[in-house]
Amino acid sequence: MTIKVLLVDDHAVVRLGLNTLLSDEREIIIVGEAANADQAMKLVDLLKPDVVILDIQIPGKNGIEVCKSIVSQYPNSKVVMLTSHTSDEFITQAIRAGASGYVLKQVGNEELLRAIKAAYAGEMAFDTQSTTQMVKTYKKMEKEAEDSIFADISQRELQVMVLVAEGQSNKEIGKKLNLSEITIRNYVSNILSKLNFRNRIDIARFAIQHHLEEKVD
């Protein structure tokens, strides 16, 4: 197995360092180097590399745009972003652009080698720091998404949902909350409409999955 690698970075010293590192690997051969976006696209077309090591900031198009172009036009060439940026925004953009890996320049050589081999095998690989950042970002997005779901649901509706999950009827819920059965029926109808649910089973499932009993005052 020989992995053909193209290096794309506008700093000659970085390309030299990568060349030195990767030249010791029997499974890897450096087929070319590029210092900007135009050179990169021409060499990808000419050399058909298996893996492109791409800096996220290069002259011409930025690395994210170059990544998109490579992935869409040359699907057999996998892209591993090599950068000094730890921002979750850059990591997210790289993933959306189709990158198979995201490795920080300041991490150990083994991380880069692992990412290259993983990309070649059709897998995704990120260094430890980037992975930690992605997990934090995912959890943040998950919380924001959950908060947006509950933004339009009142405390009274949450109470009704919890009691529906307990299997109580509208009449029983009304007695517990000192409200009429008709009022409870209206609450249930509003909940179904707001959350695009079909029936009380959907309400019960949602209440259990999201631990609504903990959100009720």
Results as ranks from 00 to 15, higher is better:
182 I>H: 02
151 A>F: 12
9 D>L: 02
97 A>K: 08
199 N>G: 04
90 F>Q: 06
211 H>C: 03
63 G>T: 10
21 L>I: 13
79 V>M: 09
80 V>R: 07
32 G>Y: 05
87 S>V: 12
32 G>E: 10
101 G>A: 10
66 V>P: 00
130 S>Y: 03
19 N>W: 03
165 A>K: 06
23 S>V: 04
45 D>N: 14
66 V>F: 10
44 V>F: 10
135 V>T: 11
4 K>P: 03
177 L>T: 04
126 F>K: 01
204 A>E: 00
33 E>W: 01
11 H>P: 05
150 F>T: 04
131 T>N: 05
191 I>F: 00
173 I>D: 08
2 T>M: 11
108 G>Y: 02
121 A>V: 06
77 S>K: 02
102 Y>I: 13
213 E>I: 12
2 T>L: 09
52 V>A: 09
50 D>N: 11
81 M>P: 08
113 L>N: 02
189 S>W: 03
117 K>I: 01
109 N>Y: 05
213 E>P: 00
43 L>N: 11
122 G>W: 04
56 I>A: 12
207 A>V: 07
87 S>P: 05
134 M>Y: 07
174 G>Y: 10
66 V>N: 09
135 V>Q: 09
138 Y>R: 05
111 E>L: 03
48 K>F: 04
165 A>Q: 07
163 L>V: 02
61 K>M: 13
169 S>C: 07
134 M>S: 08
185 R>G: 15
68 K>R: 15
85 H>Q: 14
1 M>W: 01
132 T>N: 10
195 L>S: 07
201 I>G: 00
130 S>G: 06
154 S>C: 09
85 H>N: 12
15 R>N: 12
95 I>E: 12
166 E>M: 12
14 V>Y: 03
87 S>E: 15
3 I>V: 13
170 N>C: 10
96 R>W: 00
187 Y>D: 14
155 Q>N: 13
76 N>V: 08
26 R>A: 14
70 I>D: 11
29 I>Y: 00
121 A>E: 15
26 R>F: 05
104 L>C: 06
